[in-house]
């Protein structure tokens, strides 16, 4: 089974844009976020509309930042966490480009980069936008409880990021490029606690990393940095433990976007999560680092927990997935 792909023509990442809610902007990456919201309703009536508008804003700005116009964009590949990915669809309603809806929960961002990269590398398309979003208030309502319900948040819980990020992939252009990646498989170790996403996703994350290292013959030290999506503090520890057992040590150069995004003061929880977590952090922080060549080779892997409120209501465990892309500058 060959799950690792190598892009011969290395699609370039020529523009990005990120947007974050008030809590995200107050976090460690606050000043790197391009569009900072003071109000997480973004002037809309519902949180769902707000999420869609965030996605619309990042796609629009990313195209502008890439010095392209809407006409140049062949296709938008986007996804989010809401039922039937309405945020992405309603955002795409504003564009004349093609649209492919993608869903792999919080792993959607790297999934869309792999798909977009393959479409460009194969010569089918010239410019593709990959974007994902999430919103605390709309996700909370869908996956957990009403916002105003006075329930306790257990210490293993994560906080859904209010934010979005978009990248423009192109056949030609700038220095940052995607050189390959590994497609994840669905892994389930039987975790049922919906508050412990990190533990649910860690086995899938470890599987993809292991497969990637094995197939490419690389080791963690071959990358300047290994970035995971939203495993949180607990999930990160689990992944490192599992890989350590398999002979790979990534204690030195591993960073998790979920752990990174909020201030240390939030440490009683595990950090951020959500489809917007990895895209927001990549587009605000890591892309700049890659442009400046502070990181030359980055392994970027978003992780997703593939549950729904129906499946957890029916007592099913939480399957998870992780897709990795190699980004070089």
């Amino acid at each position: 089974m060959e799950r690792t792909i190598y892009f011969k023509n290395s699609p370039k990442i020529i523009g990005v844009c990120s947007i974050g809610g008030p809590k995200e902007c107050a976090g460690t990456l606050g000043d790197k976020i391009e569009i900072k919201l003071n109000d997480d309703t973004f002037g809309e009536k519902t949180f769902e509309q707000a999420e869609s508008k965030m996605l619309y804003a990042v796609i629009k700005n990313a195209i502008k930042n890439a010095d392209k116009t809407e006409k140049d964009i062949d296709c938008i590949i986007a996804g989010d966490l809401l039922n039937q990915i309405i945020s992405a669809t309603f955002a795409a309603r504003n564009f004349s480009s093609g649209y492919l809806g993608a869903y792999n929960a919080c792993a959607t961002f790297t999934e869309s980069m792999l798909l977009g990269g393959a479409l460009i590398d194969g010569g089918y398309l010239n410019n593709v936008v990959c974007a994902t979003s999430s919103h605390f208030s709309s996700a909370e309502r869908q996956y957990r409880y009403p916002l105003e319900l006075g329930s306790t948040r257990p210490p293993q819980a994560q906080w859904t990021v209010t934010g979005a990020g978009a990248t423009v992939l192109s056949k030609s252009g700038g220095g940052v490029k995607i050189t390959g990646g590994t497609i994840g498989k669905v892994v389930d170790f039987g975790v049922t606690d919906v508050n412990n996403m990190g533990a649910a996703m860690a086995p899938a994350a470890a599987d993809t990393l292991y497969t990637h290292f094995k197939n490419t013959g690389t080791s963690p030290n071959d990358y300047d940095i290994i970035v995971t999506g939203d495993l949180g503090a607990l999930g990160s520890r689990l992944v490192k433990d599992i890989l350590w057992e398999k002979g790979y040590d990534m204690n030195k150069n591993h960073v998790d976007c979920g752990e990174l995004i909020y201030n240390v003061a939030e440490k009683e929880y595990q950090g951020g999560s959500g489809a917007g977590c990895s895209s927001l952090v990549f587009c605000s922080y890591f892309y700049e680092k890659l442009l400046k060549k502070e990181y030359k080779k980055m392994l970027f892997m978003a992780t997703g927990a593939l549950l729904s409120s129906v499946s957890s209501g029916q007592g099913e465990s939480i399957p998870a997935i992780a897709h990795a892309v190699v980004i070089e500058s």
Binding site: D188, F189, V191, L238, G315, S317
Partner: peptide, 13 residues
């Protein structure tokens, strides 16, 4: 979902 249970892992978690 029952077939997926990896008890060692769950205990460690």
């Amino acid at each position: 979902s029952k077939d997926c249970v990896n008890q060692n892992y769950l205990d460690f978690v």
